[in-house]
Simulated assay, not measured.
Amino acid sequence: MQQNLKVQADIVNELLGLEAKLEPLEARKEELKEALRGFGAAAYPVFGVGEVTVSQPSVSVKKGTQMVVDETQLSSLSDATVYEIIEKKFVVYEDVMSRAAKSRVEIKLAA
C-alpha cells in the first residue's frame, strides 16, 4: 500500500512539475495566437514542420426574439389576464443573440 502511495506521489509531483514548465509556454502560445488573429484568416504552412491556420472570427448575430417573463407568476393568471398583459406591453420580447467567438487558431505538426 505504501508503495502505491509513493508511486501516486511521484506521478503527482511529476505532473505538477510539467504543469509548472508548461504554464509559461501556454501563456506565450496564447500571446502568439492572439497576434496572428490580428492578421486575419490565413494558413501558414512551414515545410517539414507543420501548419498554423487562423479562421474567421464568429460575430454575435441576432437569432430571434425571446419573451422574458417570470413563468411561475404567469402560469397563475387567467388567459384573459395574460392577453391583457401582453397587449399593454408588460411582457416584452428581447432579441436572442448567438455567442461571439474569437477566430480559432489551429496548430498541426507535420508527421
Rank of each mutant, 00 (worst) to 15 (best):
E71C: 07
Q8S: 03
M97F: 13
A41Q: 10
I86K: 04
E51R: 15
M97T: 14
I11L: 15
R37I: 09
K21W: 06
A80S: 05
L22A: 08
A41L: 09
V92D: 14
I86H: 07
S58G: 05
A41F: 01
E14Y: 14
V59P: 02
P45I: 15
S98C: 07
V105S: 08
L109N: 12
A43S: 13
A35H: 12
V7T: 10
D95M: 10
K21Y: 01
R104D: 05
V82C: 07
E87N: 10
A9P: 04
Q8P: 09
K21G: 09
T53L: 05
E71T: 13
S103G: 15
S76G: 11
T81M: 14
V68L: 04
G40H: 03
A20L: 11
Y44H: 11
G64L: 04
A43L: 03
V105H: 12
D95T: 08
L77P: 01
R28Y: 06
S98H: 09
T53D: 01
E87P: 14
S75F: 10
P57G: 11
V105F: 13
V82A: 11
F39P: 09
N4W: 01
G48Y: 02
V7N: 06
Y93V: 14
D70H: 11
L22Q: 12
T53Q: 01
T72C: 06
S76A: 13
K88M: 11
I11D: 04
E106F: 15
S78M: 09
E23V: 12
V49I: 15
N4M: 06
V54L: 03
G64Q: 06
S75W: 07
V96E: 03
V68P: 05
I86A: 06
I11T: 04
T72P: 12
E19N: 11
V12K: 08
K21C: 09
A35S: 08
V54Q: 08
V92Y: 13
G40E: 00
K108F: 00
M1H: 06
E14I: 07
K33A: 12
E19S: 14
Y44S: 00
F90I: 02
A35N: 03
V7R: 07
A111D: 10
L74W: 15
A111L: 00
L74T: 14
R104S: 13
K89M: 05
V61S: 05
E31D: 05
K29T: 04
Q66D: 06
A42Q: 13
I107F: 02
N13L: 15
S75P: 05
L74M: 07
F47R: 13
Q2E: 07
E71G: 14
V82F: 11
V52L: 00
V12L: 02
G50A: 00
T81H: 11
R28T: 13
L77V: 08
V12F: 00
L15H: 15
